[in-house]
Amino acid sequence: MSTDTDEGLFGDIDLGWEHTKNKLFLGLIFAASMFGVVMLALLLLDVAHTFYVGLTEFNISLVQFFTVDGSRRPELAGFRGAIIASVMLMLFTAILAFFIGLGTAVYLEEYAPDTRITRLLEANLANLAGVPSIVYGLLALAALVNGIGTGPILIAGSVALALLVMPIIIVSSQEALRAVPDSVRNGSYATGATKWQTIKEVVLPAAMPGILTGTILALARAIGETAPLLMVGALFTNRMPFGPLDRFSGMPTQIYGWAAEPSQHFIHLAGVGIVVLLSILLTMNGVAIYLRNKYETEV
């Protein structure tokens, strides 16, 4: 590159090899960052292919897929029971995790004194977020399914998922509360508001978009979780649950069950199920991103 300029002002400086190293390194880190994108694209292609083959060669009808429950016979099987089960799971998970998680976050951010106990609580939260999901499944199995003897019912799965996502909700709610400026809190106190009035009227409304974003992302994580549901026994159930005390199989466990079948028809049913699950996941993430962008300009 700079070989012909020996006579010039900077002729004694040879940077050729240094620039080559720069380019090599840039190529390396670019390849690294593309790795994830390429893998995701390959996965999506594979799923899309299975989906297409399922619809064409195995004549899987989307109408039947959404209106019929699972079955031992692949040509009669649908996804409705699993979708309803997952929606109900999310509902009870949200109720369980949101209020306890938000309460914890409000206590830690607004009330807790800076003591050793508080710091221990915060450190524990970080640890809880790192616990493998199957362990929460085991906990629900030991405490509810076998402990109280509820059997493999839907609410047991919700408890396991709620425990799993609670640390995520707590941490993201804490961040949202911390983002509310103290000047706004002081403005409320100076107007003669109590602490609870300040939190209820000013702090929570200002932090709510962030809290909701975190909650939706946490639920998006929960809806795809398979291991805790397998642990509480959410498998081999085909029919739709009618309440929290029914046996159930959610979308991920239904897909898992189908994918383990020897029949190619079942495997392609699993492919269609994955497309449905991914679509719901991406929609939830999209809503979360939309909420975040919409409100991040305020406050």
Partner: peptide, 13 residues
Amino acid sequence: IGMVFQKPNPFPK
């Protein structure tokens, strides 16, 4: 005893 602060701090309302 009311108070007005250095930086305007209206509520997001």
